[in-house]
Design a protein around this nucleic acid. Sequence first.
DNA 1: ATAAAGTTTCCCATCATGGGAAGGTCAAGG
DNA 2: CCTTGACCTTCCCATGATGGGAAACTTTAT
Lengths: 153, 153
Amino acid sequence: MNIGDAAKASGVSAKMIRYYEEIGLVPKAARRGSGYRDYGEADVHRLRFIRRARDLGFAVEEIGELLALWSDRTRASSAVKAMALSHVEDLRRKRDEIDGMIATLEGLAACCHGDDRPDCPILEELATETAPVGPPPGPPRFGRPGGRAPQRS
Amino acid sequence: MNIGDAAKASGVSAKMIRYYEEIGLVPKAARRGSGYRDYGEADVHRLRFIRRARDLGFAVEEIGELLALWSDRTRASSAVKAMALSHVEDLRRKRDEIDGMIATLEGLAACCHGDDRPDCPILEELATETAPVGPPPGPPRFGRPGGRAPQRS
DNA sequence: ATAAAGTTTCCCATCATGGGAAGGTCAAGG
DNA sequence: CCTTGACCTTCCCATGATGGGAAACTTTAT
């Protein structure tokens, strides 16, 4: 099986397959006489595993751990569960951060009449000298704890 | 004002201030005889604006547009509102994607007894030959439409 | 035999951020 | 006056996961 076929079969692009090999996430593929990489069912299986884990938001490094657990027949399921739940915590943090942004922006947008006139509470808020205000009407105030907003696409 | 003071006053690191200057997000700072950059209140004000916008998840390029609107006294507030709401849409998409991951992972984790035994539905799911199954008990099934999970920290 | 499609490696780009080195500048204290 | 430490400058490198593209080679189909 060529890399292209393995890519189609696993849903991982050929580029990424080579990358995963380079960083050691997957073992070095066998080579044919021509130098072409040669893949079997087991490799595709492994790649599919990786792709699924990526879809669930696991970082490549974490996937390495998952793969290790996967190939360890004596693993304790608690170890896997712990990884999963810890990852869920990460995801929740990110989601909450995004929710905070959404709440603030919607609050501001709701205050903005959004017509031809130039005065706009959104810009005013961004330009405020002091601390941010957020949506004036009561509900749950969003408070970013501190530090930079880390990643965003 | 030195760059360090501007950094403290604005909440943008000195590194990033130089970077923003380099990419043209902020105008080239005035220089003193020594070569040191020199900042005034207006510069700090602008940097603070940028930082706030970053905190709301705007990309640097979008912030450039926001700054342009900000400095355009004749802007229509509708333009700003449109940017804000379009960004909210982006954020919502990301959040929903994360929510899907959380739902799937929690469903799997709930099925995993999480003890010493090696059998683990989480790994089984990742290793499944066919399509993912997700949390078996009824509720809203999470369906990722297709394509890669794009960014994750 | 030739053309098309697939593969190889290598380099570059992204996006926002930080680390660190080598060297210049400034302010305070002796 | 000189030293010391804190600050500044530029330049290069790294991150994480992904893609783009070039130049050269192999395989496959016509």
